[in-house]
Computed example of a mutant assay.
Amino acid sequence: MASAVGPGLDGQNRGLLTFPPMAWTSASRRRFAERVGGNRTFMSHGAIVQAASESDGGSPVFVLLLCFFLVMGVVQVVRPQLLWKANSRLQRGWVRNPEASEPTSKGYAMNRVVGVIFLGFVIWMLVQQF
């Protein structure tokens, strides 16, 4: 079984993470490694987490998009009938009677429940941006 810490291309053990060992790699991979300098190191997990967690507050366009979704979520919770009326025009080509496909009171209640979950998710994403 090979160790994850092994010798570099020049045979010196530098403690670099070289996996799989050079004996296991194909000749073309060895030639490529020689051309790019031979240092096949990988970024440590801590560095990746640190780079991913450093944010400057987020994109203003993304915040605007989240605000639009926030408004849509409020409309879905407060007046789901407005969303149905706005989208019922899209049914005209596929449904014979779009007015007959209006949800029942239980359907609107389910829309409100989904809207509350959606609002929670959007608010959480907005909080994460700041």
Rank of each mutant, 00 (worst) to 15 (best):
51 A>W: 09
48 I>Y: 14
118 F>P: 00
84 W>M: 03
108 Y>K: 09
38 G>V: 08
39 N>A: 12
24 W>I: 03
38 G>Y: 01
110 M>W: 07
23 A>R: 09
116 V>L: 15
103 P>T: 04
61 V>A: 11
53 S>L: 11
106 K>M: 08
4 A>P: 08
55 S>M: 03
31 R>M: 09
39 N>F: 10
26 S>W: 06
81 Q>M: 13
37 G>V: 12
11 G>D: 09
103 P>Q: 05
130 F>G: 11
107 G>Y: 00
129 Q>V: 05
60 P>N: 09
126 L>W: 01
53 S>H: 10
57 G>L: 09
117 I>G: 13
18 T>K: 05
114 V>M: 15
8 G>H: 05
68 F>P: 00
60 P>T: 14
118 F>N: 06
8 G>S: 14
103 P>W: 01
39 N>S: 05
56 D>Q: 11
127 V>E: 03
98 P>H: 07
77 V>E: 01
36 V>M: 12
77 V>K: 01
79 R>A: 10
22 M>W: 14
4 A>S: 11
80 P>A: 03
42 F>E: 11
60 P>W: 12
109 A>E: 08
55 S>L: 06
29 R>M: 09
34 E>K: 14
52 A>V: 03
121 F>N: 04
66 L>R: 00
38 G>L: 04
32 F>C: 05
93 G>I: 07
82 L>Y: 04
100 A>E: 09
87 N>A: 13
118 F>L: 06
96 R>L: 10
95 V>S: 10
93 G>R: 10
129 Q>N: 14
108 Y>H: 10
25 T>E: 05
70 L>I: 03
50 Q>P: 00
118 F>W: 07
97 N>K: 14
92 R>H: 10
99 E>K: 09
46 G>F: 01
107 G>W: 00
97 N>C: 10
81 Q>R: 15
89 R>P: 00
129 Q>K: 13
3 S>C: 03
125 M>D: 00
124 W>F: 15
66 L>W: 02
65 L>V: 11
121 F>Y: 11
59 S>W: 01
6 G>F: 02
103 P>V: 02
106 K>D: 08
83 L>W: 13
101 S>H: 05
1 M>T: 06
39 N>T: 09
28 S>A: 15
72 M>T: 10
119 L>C: 13
87 N>R: 13
31 R>P: 00
62 F>D: 08
102 E>D: 02
37 G>H: 06
78 V>L: 13
15 G>Q: 06
97 N>D: 15
122 V>C: 12
7 P>H: 01
3 S>T: 12
83 L>Q: 08
44 S>W: 03
79 R>S: 09
105 S>N: 11
45 H>I: 10
36 V>D: 03
116 V>W: 14
43 M>H: 01
89 R>N: 06
122 V>F: 02
111 N>V: 08
120 G>T: 05
117 I>H: 00
8 G>W: 06
51 A>V: 02
40 R>N: 08
102 E>S: 03
119 L>H: 02
97 N>Y: 10
75 V>C: 04
80 P>W: 01
94 W>D: 12
129 Q>E: 15
50 Q>D: 14
50 Q>I: 01
111 N>Q: 11
12 Q>S: 07
47 A>I: 00
126 L>S: 04
9 L>T: 11
107 G>S: 06
30 R>L: 13
128 Q>P: 00
102 E>G: 02
95 V>I: 15
81 Q>V: 14
